[in-house]
Design a protein around this nucleic acid. Structure first.
Ligand SMILES: [Zn+2]
Ligand SMILES: [Zn+2]
Ligand SMILES: [Zn+2]
Ligand SMILES: [Zn+2]
Lengths: 147, 147
DNA sequence: GTATTATTGCGACAGAGTCTCAGTTGCCAT
DNA sequence: ATGGCAACTGAGACTCTGTCGCAATAATAC
């Protein structure tokens, strides 16, 4: 049969909606625990893939081999530059790149459902020697207007 | 002191060089076991990251939360379209996209070290109803000339 | 040839994510 | 509103990829 809207799922969705940026399942769990919102780890791990299927969130940057999610609803599509020094993430959009992707896929008869573009490298601050400028760098997200 | 060229590392490099396409560490191990080449799992897991640092291979598509590698030496850079139906992988290159990425990064003062572009969707065969055309699709790689 | 020290292999370990199963609860039909 | 049932939850055991510690080994430097 169909899915059911349970109390737990409402709580999880609410929590996901309550902030921007990237998160990992266990991170979400901790956040909820600290707020005294009781939901089991299993439920979180079971719900997030459902939200991906609904298009509410998507898997984003992988770090260490942990799945990271990112809210989609209420946010524009963007891609990522990840600094290998400080771990910082710059979000960016290039309409031209998006258009070219569509063109390439069309040529292959490939129907796009989504994509992930992740550029690895060294951000300006780190390369200018402001070592650890962005500090110990626990994935601070440096949002950015479309280019 | 520096690194050492050991018998084990030679064997691993030889095995990696012996085929194109993507592979996972344990896959490589099995392959070698079957050929009666004895190298410990730990050595493989320790060597592959070194090869990444040398630029001989790189981490490619993640699948299930397993690290997948791909040989770089002797192959041109390319990106991936992954079919969500059959699991097939189409490799492609768009020089324009590559160029645009450089432009965007330059604008951000971001020094590119590498990138991963993975487009998810449905390939031609699957969308034309040739369901399972590419068969049970365990990641068959459909190489392709530059577009 | 000997000293030095990186590397190997093994098995123990770590941690993200999955599975099982009994108990619960949303949902639909009556 | 009530009952029935399948979907869901929570707890913990489990799986599986990847890492670590340590004693034995072997590649390099002298
Ligand atoms: Zn994009
Ligand atoms: Zn983002
Ligand atoms: Zn590329
Ligand atoms: Zn490839």
């Amino acid at each position: 049969m169909g899915l059911r809207m349970t109390r737990e799922r409402e709580l999880i969705v609410a929590e996901v909606d309550s902030f921007d940026g990237h998160f990992e399942p266990d991170e979400l769990l901790d956040r909820m625990r600290r707020k005294n919102i009781r939901v089991s780890r299993a439920s979180i791990y079971r719900t997030l893939p459902l939200l991906v299927e609904c298009g509410a969130i998507k898997e984003a940057v992988y770090k260490d081999r942990k799945t990271r999610y990112e809210r989609l609803i209420g946010r524009d599509h963007h891609d990522h530059m990840v600094c290998t020094e400080c771990g910082g993430v710059i979000e960016f959009v290039s309409d031209e790149i998006e258009r070219l992707q569509e063109a390439v896929c069309k040529r292959h008869g490939f129907g796009i459902a989504g994509h992930t573009l992740e550029i690895r490298g060294v951000c300006r601050d780190c390369s200018e020697g402001k070592t650890g400028a962005s500090s110990a760098g626990r994935g601070n997200t440096n949002s950015d207007a479309r280019s």
